[in-house]
Amino acid sequence: MSKKVLVLAEVKDGKLRNVSYEALSAAKKIADGGEIASVLLGSNVEQYHSSLGHYGANKVYLLEDPKLDLYTTDGYKEALLQVINEFPADVILVGHTGIGRDLTPKLAQSLKAGMVSDSTALEVVDNQVVFTRPIYAGKAFVKKTIKEGKVIATIRPNNIPVDEPDTGLQAEVIKLTYQPSETALLVKVRDVIRKASKGVDLTEAKIVVSGGRGVKSKEGFEKLYELADLLNAAVGSSRGACDAEYSDYSLQVGQTGKVVTPDLYFAFGISGAIQHVAGMSNSKVIVAVNKDPEAPIFQIADYGIVADMFDVLPILIDEIKKMNA
C-alpha cells in the first residue's frame, strides 16, 4: 500500500546534509509509489529544492522566514505541523542529528504518535515499516515497528545507502507562510558560539581519527587534526582523553558520548574500554595503533600496528600526502 512520506531537509554550512539524502532514499523504499515531500526552513533555502527533487522528493514545502534561521524546538515543531496540515504524511523521517533528536520526539508527542529513534536500517514487511536500532550504544540491536498512527523515525547518519540522483526529476515547490504561536517563541536563542568549525561533523564523517590517553596532551591532538584534514575526516576521542582535558567532551566517542559508524575508524592510543568500543565497533573498518600489544582494541581492529602512535603518525601523514599529490 502506498504511503505519504515527509522528510525534513537540513541545511548546514550552506549545504544539504547527507543524512537528508539518506532519509529521502529511505522514504522511496517506504512510499511504495506514494508521494514524498520534503521541508525546507529558514531564509534563502529555496535553492536546495532542485537537489531534493533529484533525490526523490515530489514536493518541497518551503517556509522561508528569518525566524527559522536559528533552530528552536517549538519553532521547528510548529513549522512542521503546518506542513503536516497540508500534507498529511503517514510516515515522517528526520536525520538523527542535533536538531533531529531534539525536535522529533516533541513533534511525535504533539501528534500522539510513536517514534523510533536513531534507526540504522529499515525494511517494509507486510506493509509495516520495521526499523532496526542500536540499544546499549550498539552492544545489542532491536527491531521495532509502530503499530498504529503515524510512523515517525530519526535515522542515524552514514547507515542508509543513498540512491543515485536523477537530475531529470523536479519537485513541485509549495510556499507556506510561517505562523508561529506565542509558545513557539518562549525560548530565545541569544547567541551561537561556533567551536566545531574545525573539520567535519563527527556523526556524519566517513572517516574518524580518534585519540585516547596515549595522545598525552592537547598538542598531541594537533597531529591527529593534521591527519584528519588530509582525509577529510572528523576527530574523535576516548573518555580518558576528555577526562585528562586533551580534548573536548563534544568529541567523545562511546556509550556516554557519540556513537559513530564511519567507513573507517582510526584508534590512536586508545586501549579499547568496553564503553568506547560500544561507540565505534560498528564502524566498517577499524585501524588501531597502540604501544601495548595486549590492548583490547586490537581484538576488534581490522588492521593493527603495535607502536608508539607518534612514531607512526608522521609516516602515515607523509604517505597520504604522497597519495593525494
Binding site: 504518535a113 510513536g114 523510533v116 532491536v142 503499530k147 498512527g149 581492529a301 588492521y303 600496528i305
Partner: peptide, 24 residues
C-alpha cells in the same frame, strides 16, 4: 505503547584482524 519490539539480537562478533609486521 505505540511501538512494538519484534526482536533483540547481538551484533556479529568482530573478528580480530591483522597485526602488521616489519619495519615501522
Amino acid at each position: 505503547p505505540r511501538t512494538e519490539e519484534i526482536s533483540i539480537y547481538l551484533p556479529p562478533k568482530k573478528e580480530a584482524g591483522r597485526i602488521l609486521k616489519g619495519e615501522l
